[in-house]
């Protein structure tokens, strides 16, 4: 069953068509890769799904509900979490504070219980601290919980973003270049994390330029070029698709 479905999604910035008439579906419990050359409109698609920017035309359905016009914070509470291409952690706050931000949308205590630390608020605090530590252990950063997020090495910051997104208890996780800037060893760890995320029955959609990572992790690929969806299918098929080779993989091979 399709968890997420994009229907004739179009986004224009002034005269520039960033995403043009993209329709596709993402089925539950799959890992979908969105690939394509730089400037193809991949991140724009992510921003449209998460509500960071507004659709020009078309509609996006998540679990049967339209996401059109919803605030990003509302979309998160429906179960879509994301990471950013350029890391957007709360740099000055602790690692634990960062993960707790993900728990925010699953908490209930309001202004007055926060002001007065009522018993229900305390129970909730304890529960989210546990949850945050579970997510930190999940990505292997629990021992650094007190450190300032900005002081972590780059690879760890990427992992922390994933932990923060997982703390929102998502059904659908959007990763924008999760392996970007990681060394080989860190990428291997990330693969393990991806496996573990799949075991938690979280559907994943990711943008990534590291092709061996994409081929290894994804079971379905969407290929974009110039704002259009030019191909989709299993990784092996995509690798052989002449259109894709011309647009993307071919160039990549030449570089190497």
């Amino acid at each position: 069953m399709a968890l997420l479905s994009l229907q004739k999604v179009t986004k224009t910035f002034g005269g520039l068509v960033a995403v043009s008439d993209v329709s596709c579906e993402v089925s539950s419990d799959s890992v979908v890769g969105l690939i394509g050359p730089n400037g193809a409109g991949k991140t724009t698609v992510f921003n449209l799904i998460t509500g960071s920017i507004r659709l020009t035309e078309g509609d996006i359905f998540f679990d049967g509900k339209s996401l059109k016009g919803l605030r990003p914070s509302r979309i998160v509470s429906l179960g879509i979490a994301r990471t950013f291409q350029s890391i957007r952690l709360f740099q000055g706050l602790s690692v634990l504070d960062n993960v707790l931000s993900g728990c925010h949308c699953r908490m209930r205590s309001g202004l007055f219980s926060s002001l007065l630390h009522l018993p229900g608020q305390r129970r909730e605090e304890k529960a989210v601290l546990e949850r945050a530590m579970i997510e930190l252990e999940f990505v292997g950063l629990a021992h650094l919980f007190r450190s300032a997020a900005g002081s972590l090495p780059y690879g760890d910051q990427r992992k922390l973003e994933i932990a923060r997104a997982l703390a929102t208890d998502p059904r659908f996780l959007i990763l924008d270049e999760p392996a970007g800037g990681m060394n080989e060893q860190e990428t291997m760890t990330l693969r393990e994390i991806m496996k573990a995320i799949r075991k938690r029955n979280i559907t994943v959609m990711l943008i990534e330029h590291d092709m061996s990572f994409v081929m290894h992790v994804c079971d379905h690929l969407l290929v974009m070029e110039n704002g259009q969806l030019i191909a989709q299918g299993a990784p092996q098929e995509i690798q052989k698709n002449p259109k894709v080779i011309e647009a993307y993989l071919g160039l990549e091979d030449d570089d190497e």
Partner: peptide, 13 residues
């Protein structure tokens, strides 16, 4: 710290 990230983490900024 970061309004965009806060909104994306579910805080109605």
């Amino acid at each position: 710290e970061d309004v965009v990230a806060a909104e994306s983490m579910g805080v109605n900024t």
